[in-house]
Design a binder for these strands. Structure first.
Lengths: 132, 132
DNA sequence: TAGGTACCTTACTTTTTTGTCTGTACTTGT
DNA sequence: ACAAGTACAGACAAAAAAGTAAGGTACCTA
């Protein structure tokens, strides 16, 4: 099992936390599962066509092992598996909210700066002060 | 420059945020710089002897480019460079707090579970006791 | 001339993470 | 028989991140 996260240093609790949601799609998956519980495998696949099946399962399994999602198998035919967030997972999702907010703000600032640079680059820096 | 973070998916703002602090030592560095501002290069190196100079510089440069830390050079001899958190960086550090809290709790739960399992599992009691 | 401090830079290697592709077991529909 | 759908598993390869080792500048001391 792909050991996940190249061993993060710890000091504050960020190491363990990033070890759990550091994967490329994990935060997104947790978020989606937490939004629309319970979520089936195929549903997640359809919601995020970008992610490969392998990564989807791998991430789901790791998240299950980390106790942030719950996996329930229904022995039907065709097979059916449902994923939901555990209480711990729900807490994590909440703890992620401020970070997501910061990310959004940062994104806007960055895009704003890029747009500004695009306009400022051809000529003078008359824009330098024109920022809100 | 090592493109940093294998392009994260976005939906909520977590992609951009993780792109900024996703590096192995970045969160730790931000935290330390925010604690003891201003921080010199050599100081950070001493505080975290584990991190190589290359990664230290690389991460510092990326964080500077992302606008979360400020780098100030004093043209002295021997050279002197000071790093400090920008307001944006300080905000990020705050946004990271709940996640760190969760990480700490998760760590305790995990360690507790491991200890509990060690006591609950010894069906073959020899293995349960056989660790330094 | 050699060695020391401080702050990097570069080339190269290893490790970790992600992606691609093929295959399983089972049933329904044509 | 063959395709399609469900929920995976495993081999292999590519990409990204991190690490190692050496060097480079600029000055100072011995």
């Amino acid at each position: 099992m792909e050991k996940n996260q190249r061993k993060l240093p710890d000091s504050c609790g960020l190491g363990p936390a990033l070890a759990v949601i550091g994967g490329k799609w994990k935060a997104l998956l947790l978020w989606q599962i937490h939004q629309a519980q319970p979520c089936r495998f195929g549903e997640l696949k359809r919601l995020q066509p970008e992610i490969s099946e392998k990564m989807l399962i791998q991430h789901l399994r790791e998240m299950e092992a980390d106790g942030i999602i719950h996996r329930e198998v229904f022995h039907q035919v065709p097979p059916r598996v449902e994923y939901s967030a555990t209480p711990e997972g729900a807490e994590l999702d909440l703890a992620l909210a401020p970070l997501a907010d910061w990310g959004k703000k940062h994104q806007e600032r960055t895009e704003g700066a890029k747009a500004g640079a695009a306009r400022a680059a051809p000529r003078t820096a008359a824009e330098g002060a024109a920022r809100g």
